[in-house]
Design a protein around this nucleic acid. Structure first.
Ligand code: SF4
Ligand code: SF4
Lengths: 157, 157
DNA sequence: CTAACTCCGACCTGATTAGTCCTATATTAG
DNA sequence: CTAATATAGGACTAATCAGGTCGGAGTTAG
């Protein structure tokens, strides 16, 4: 159904919190979890993972917590999604290793791969800084062939 | 992981077959299933579903089968995906009914909805006719604001 | 030193999906 | 008419994966 996992959802929520709401940009897993009513341990795991990959820095101890390790504008959605959900793939043949039964005879693999690249591109052009509802989004237009404007371009509200 | 279901994958394969390979544009579920080595019953169910929604027309009987009910150029990927996998949604709050626990406090719902619209737009601008690897794809560039890192615009081979 | 608080890694469980099976109905070749 | 072949549709089972939970290790205030 083309959905991204709840973990990713929570991750985005947490990162967005650290980027905008958190006092001094620091907050513990517990604080964030209570703010959004997320299972503490689960969010903790997500943050741990993000810490290992260098998105956030962790501080143990009594007044510890997490804070962004990189500026919000330098973190793309694509990075976050791939960090938590693994490499982006819309089909089962998502990059080497596991290839589906009909890999050899498949005639839609390449075209679908192109679609995947386009989706990836969409995710890559949006940064964490633009994720907030406050900051008015910059209009982004997806240009298709020929008729540029026709394809229902997504605009800022 | 942002993946579309195997059913959809099979559906695309079948429709693409009917659009290009099938002699006289007609083929039975069995034929297609054997062509791609897909479980017959499963593909049959997918095709039945597509028939009910008017994508293909079914002909029962000894030399029956399915054929496209609409021209390939008039069928977008978005339609097919939504027909089989249900309404496109990248989050759990995918349109009314089921809303997740943190619906009220969520601060990323709206931005993510915009992302969804963009992805939908990508799927909508691609038709079944362009799904074939033969037909050389027209370069499609997703324009964001100035240069998103590796950018990697999607090009025709 | 120790108690409170935090991050950390492994485990378990329920939901979704992929796949199977069985029966009914319609069409046509012979 | 009858046998073969095709769609139609439901119900059932198996496998996979995401969501959630548990106990443990490290760090710091007092
Ligand atoms: S090889 Fe073809 S059928 Fe298999 S997962 Fe990739 S696109 Fe789908
Ligand atoms: S409401 Fe927010 S947290 Fe819940 S599914 Fe939608 S985007 Fe995710």
């Amino acid at each position: 159904m083309l959905r991204l996992s709840k973990k990713t959802d929570y991750g985005l929520l947490a990162l967005q919190y650290l980027a905008t709401e958190a006092p001094a940009g620091v907050a513990s897993a517990r604080t964030i979890a209570e703010r959004y009513d997320i299972p503490v341990e689960l969010l903790a795991k997500v943050l741990q993972h993000l810490a290992r990959l260098g998105f956030v820095a962790a501080q143990k101890g009594v007044h510890g917590g997490y804070h962004l390790a990189r500026p919000a504008r330098a973190i793309s959605l694509a990075e976050i999604v791939e960090a938590i959900d693994g490499p982006l793939a819309i089909t089962a043949c998502g990059r080497r290793d596991e290839q589906c039964e009909q890999f050899g005879t498949c005639t839609v693999r390449d075209p679908l791969s192109r679609v995947k690249d386009q989706i990836f591109s969409v995710l890559q052009t949006m940064t964490l800084a633009e994720l907030t509802p406050d900051e008015h989004a910059i209009p982004i237009v997806v240009r298709g062939r020929g008729e540029a404007g026709s394809g229902a371009p997504v605009e800022a509200r």
